[in-house]
Design a protein around this nucleic acid. Structure first.
Length: 492
RNA sequence: GGCGCAUUCGUCUAGGGGUCUAGGACAUCGCCCUCUCAAGGCGGAGAUCGGGGGUUCGAAUCCCCCAUGCGCUACCA
């Protein structure tokens, strides 16, 4: 058996921003190519001029780059099978549409959109087959054709689907699938504007680009018999097919804008890590075994296989993504993390914080929030008090710990302030040592002293460890904030 | 309406006739750790494998029927 070289493609159309489902398809193709030492090709299917969306192409390219899904052939990198934009290959499609015409596998259709529309509506009422077109133009005589031509009608070219029989093809994920020809319409191959439809362009390109495996979303399964028929009519060998399970929103419908931020660029913006994203997406419809779920990029490449792609649609689970992203954040070297968080802080911190923020200082802050954030985008809300001035905004009532009152809180703050004033070395250990000792001397529980100090220094009741926080904030800022707190409480 | 695909804890999944009184993960709950919040550790609850028929000594696993969901049914991809 001759093993064909693996050549797979991701073929998006620039009609919108790629969401997690689109990119998951790209990922599977890329993984398969890398796993088998083949090529990953990016082809842009821009045959629908009316649905083109500004910026969509850039978003597609950027999403792939962000995840490190590099393509061997396609836009920007070129290749021997180009061009890689379908809009630049029009003559090719026209040539093969003409060929099909000549071999009697296709015909010109002059029917108006209105007539087609009418028939479609009638089909629904008929409650019979799924075919709506009545094949009116399929067997037109030359005279009739000439008649239509003389009326100035630009025809479309339709494929002649065999009237009887059925087509069976093998899907690598789902097995053998059979469709009756009687269910298939004579699909349009070439539109009246001279552009091909998806079906024509797709098979012509996959053939000439020598694509070995077509891995695409499940929504294409129903049109695969048409494609197989088309390959046969051309006299070409079809590639292997693998239809991937769809990714659904929480309401179980096809993923779309309605489901919130599902565009990959949006995840990037919110501070998800490409590594986590890749790991997470790989598990949407694929698994290695019953327990492994953390995979590096190299492990994914090593273990990926079509056999282990599942056939059931998956609902996109945002909570698990958050968890996984947090995992990757915690694993990151603090230095690397700060480098990535710096720009986030620069943009998210309140305007009152002077810019640029200190890299050295940020480096000290990061380890304290590292295990508390799940996305880079959460950094500012967890760390803002490290950068704010002496006056923090908070409800003075927060200073009063549970089961204590205003008087004892005031007393604790004052005692704490006094003790801190006398501290020699302002670091974690000495802070902890002297404050614990103070609590003991006063005969109070540690929390009754630490809690008001925490609120005074950070403006909140939940924060990173008190002593490491105070150590990073520094003596001056802590002392002043405690003074402010005492005043707030006394006058409040 | 027609056709196709799918159907295991709330969610992602493991499982491909006996080792399944169905395993793992997220979320959830409890405990431990602890200055708070996290992180981490431990443990609990959670699926009679969509329903019904078969086949078999034996079925989540094979077959059939039904139900439900999704997809397609465009001169969109």
């Amino acid at each position: 058996m001759t093993e064909k070289k693996v050549r797979v493609r991701f073929a998006p159309s620039p009609t919108g921003y790629p969401h997690i489902g689109n990119i998951r398809t790209a990922l599977f193709n890329w993984l398969f190519a890398r796993h088998s030492g083949g090529s990953f090709i990016l082809r842009i299917e821009d045959t629908d001029q009316s649905r083109k969306v500004e910026g969509a192409l850039e978003a597609i390219l950027n999403s792939l780059k962000w995840l490190g899904l590099n393509w061997d052939e396609g836009p920007e990198v070129g290749g021997d099978y180009g061009p890689y934009f379908q809009s630049e290959r029009l003559d090719l499609y026209q040539k093969y549409a003409r060929q099909l015409l000549e071999t009697g596998n296709a015909y010109k259709c002059y029917c108006s959109p209105e007539r087609l529309d009418q028939m479609r509506r009638e089909m629904v009422e008929r409650k019979e087959s799924g075919r709506s077109y009545d094949r009116h133009c399929r067997d037109l005589s030359p005279a009739q054709q000439a008649e239509y031509e003389s009326q100035g009608i630009t025809p479309v070219i339709r494929f002649k689907v065999p009237l009887e029989g059925q087509t069976t093809f093998h899907d690598l994920v789902r097995g053998d699938i059979t469709f009756d020809h009687s269910e298939l319409d004579d699909l349009v191959l070439l539109k009246s504007d001279g552009y091909p439809t998806y079906h024509l362009a797709n098979i012509v390109d996959d053939h000439f680009m020598e694509i070995s495996h077509i891995m695409r979303a499940d929504e294409w399964l129903s049109s695969t018999p048409r494609h197989v028929l088309l390959y046969r009519a051309m006299g070409w060998e079809p590639p292997l097919f693998a239809h991937l399970p769809m990714i659904l929103g929480p309401d179980k419908s096809k993923l779309s804008k309605r489901h919130g931020a599902t565009a990959v660029t949006e995840f990037q913006k919110q501070g998800y890590l490409p590594k986590a994203m890749m790991n997470f997406m790989a598990l949407l419809g694929w698994s290695l075994d019953d327990k492994t779920e953390i995979f590096s990029r190299d492990e994914l490449i090593k273990y990926f296989s079509i056999e282990r792609i599942s056939s059931t649609a998956a609902i996109f689970n945002h909570e698990k993504l958050n968890w996984m992203n947090g995992l990757y954040i915690r694993e990151m070297p603090a230095e690397e993390l700060s480098k990535q968080i710096m720009p986030v802080l620069e943009s998210d911190l309140p305007a009152s914080v002077p810019r640029p923020i200190s890299e050295e200082y940020t480096m000290q802050v990061i380890p304290l929030i590292q295990e508390r954030i799940n996305t880079l985008g959460e950094a500012a809300s967890y760390a803002d008090f490290f950068f704010l001035g002496d006056e923090l905004e908070y409800d003075p009532a927060l200073l009063i710990a549970k089961k204590t009152d205003k008087e004892s809180t005031l007393k604790a703050l004052k005692a704490g302030l006094e003790r801190l004033l006398s501290i020699n070395e302002w670091n974690h250990d000495s802070l902890e040592g002297s404050l614990r000792l103070l609590a003991e001397e006063q005969g109070t529980k540690a929390g009754q002293l630490f809690s008001p100090l925490r609120v005074a220094c950070t403006g909140r009741t939940a924060s990173p460890g008190l002593f490491e926080t105070m150590a990073v904030l520094g003596r001056e800022k802590c002392l002043r904030r405690i003074e402010v707190a005492i005043n707030k409480l006394a006058n409040g």
